[in-house]
Design a binder for these strands. Structure first.
Lengths: 120, 120
DNA sequence: CTTGACTATGGAGTTAACTCCATAGTTTAG
DNA sequence: CTAAACTATGGAGTTAACTCCATAGTCAAG
């Protein structure tokens, strides 16, 4: 799988993918004789995770640490488990924040209905 | 309520609050004779919403449109309701994305410790 | 009146995360 | 062969969202 296919599968730009490689968010792919990058299928999944996480307000620094945890085996199982649990807690916190915003919106919507009145 | 109190209540910097005012995310406060800003209590709630939304990956541009919807009465009830429902849909989508990341993490955790059935 | 904690301003500087550019090598279709 | 469509590189430029700075006015305490 070469660059063009990855671009099509992820809807990320060539420059963005190269940038993520430089920053260590995805592993450097093998090169064929001409110097072209040759990607493993799994990079698509990794890039999609990065894209989702970015959309959710995680910084690339945060995403990198998660990506390394998920896709590289650099830590002991124990360290890895602790880090992953931390990440899961962060996500739970974000879900709670989303719920808070949602209830603010719900309150505004409820306040607009004729039979309900005051809105804080 | 003046600047210092707002800073303490929101943990945002003076510069950030001034920046949000300049960008129209919060209304320009009234000024006392000396030129000092004098805030209404509601600004704290608005700033906290901005902070949460930012943490969740909304841009200031997106947040501005939401803040205007929630705190200023510039649209008809019908328009407002439509916009608020859109925002609520966006939030539902973000929750789904968070769930996707969470399951990726859960899968990694499950793969690491197949003997453990329950994950905190 | 001085000191120190407030407040104000416009504008420059910073950081993250791209995004673009100029240049150049490779491969494929005709 | 040429032309189009790929690929590569380092480095400059851009945008969002702050963050800092220099300068200066205000106000309460001692």
């Amino acid at each position: 799988m070469q660059m063009r296919e990855v671009i099509e599968a992820t809807h990320l730009s060539r420059d963005t993918i190269r940038f993520y490689e430089k920053e260590g968010l995805i592993p450097a792919p093998v090169r064929s004789g001409n110097g072209y990058r040759h990607y493993d299928e799994s990079v698509v999944r990794q890039l999609k995770l990065i894209k989702r996480a970015k959309h959710l307000g995680f910084t690339l620094k945060e995403i990198k640490s998660l990506a390394v945890l998920l896709y590289q085996n650099s830590l002991t199982p124990r360290e890895m488990e602790l880090h992953l649990r931390d990440k899961r807690d962060e996500i739970a916190e974000k879900i709670a924040e989303l719920a808070a915003i949602k209830s603010e919106i719900d309150a505004a919507l409820a306040g607009m209905c004729p039979d309900k009145k005051s809105l804080g």
